[in-house]
Nucleic acid binder design. Structure first.
Length: 255
DNA sequence: ATGGCTTCATAGTGAAGA
């Protein structure tokens, strides 16, 4: 099974790139974040025509998540239990006995912002939910845009970023709390190039200069991690005209 | 550097992203 996650920063704008990418990258499931589409505007017909099923939870302008798959998803859920939230950031479903949990984690904006407190509380709710879900779904993958760079090696300039949002210690502690559920960072199961990132700012030629952060992740449950054969970031779409600021992250599982 | 792009929004003194 091959699965991937990609923050597309508007599915309306990026649909042609997504369809092209799926042709070149025959995954079983692709998790999308920041679709920025209400459900009524979701391009289901175009995806079906290209041979893809889709489950989605969207809203106007912001957020929005979806899972595209060859086979239909089963047991789809779109809520964080016990966390009343109008923001569409979660969609989960099952495929071939694997539970896929697609998340668009809050950005936080700045350490002083109310959005930062919301981010920390949101991660607590996510962790509590997954602690409950894992016994039910031992073969579970949590993938998406976490908006956290877990370690300094995931940051192009750790000194400049020290303590900033996406990198701050309280955020990294939330990431570690997910790992303490037994989830493993698929990307770090393998040797990787130094300077591997999944997001680059649109400004300042950040991509060309590789001034990035690794904030998009695939976390595998203990039952799945031994089945992982590869995990990589596909930088090709970031080189396209009018790209998303994020690159897809792909994981290959031998089930 | 004071957020320099990009999105969706509306016509703002944008807002938000990361």
């Amino acid at each position: 099974m091959r699965i991937a996650t990609w923050n597309v920063n508007s599915l309306k704008v990026r649909l042609p790139q997504v369809l092209d990418w799926l042709v070149a990258n025959p995954v079983d499931a692709l998790c999308l974040q920041e679709t920025k589409l209400e459900n009524a505007s979701f391009p289901l017909a175009q995806l079906n025509e290209a041979g893809w099923q889709a489950a989605f939870a969207g809203q106007k302008t912001y957020n929005g998540v979806a899972i595209l798959s060859r086979a239909p998803l089963e047991d789809v859920r779109t809520e964080l239990p016990g966390f009343a939230d109008a923001q569409k950031r979660v969609i989960a479903g099952s495929l071939q006995g694997v539970r896929l949990v697609c998340v668009y984690c809050p950005n936080g904006q700045s350490l002083e912002s109310d959005k930062y407190q919301y981010k920390l509380a949101w991660f607590d709710a996510l962790t509590a939910w997954l602690r409950d879900e894992l016994p039910r779904h031992p073969r579970l993958v949590l993938l998406g845009d976490y908006n956290i760079a877990p370690e300094d090696r995931d940051v192009h300039d750790p000194a400049a970023w020290q303590g900033a949002v996406l990198v701050s210690e309280p955020e990294r502690a939330k990431f570690r709390a997910l790992r303490e559920l037994g989830l493993q960072d698929a990307f770090r199961l393998f040797e990787q190039e130094e300077g591997s990132y999944s997001w680059w700012d649109y400004r300042q030629g950040a991509f060309r200069r590789n001034l990035g952060l690794r904030i998009d992740h695939v976390l595998l449950s203990g039952a799945l991690a031994p089945a992982c054969r590869a995990c990589y970031i596909d930088k090709a779409p970031r080189r396209l005209e009018r790209p998303s600021d994020h690159a897809p992250v792909v994981a290959e599982l031998e089930l």
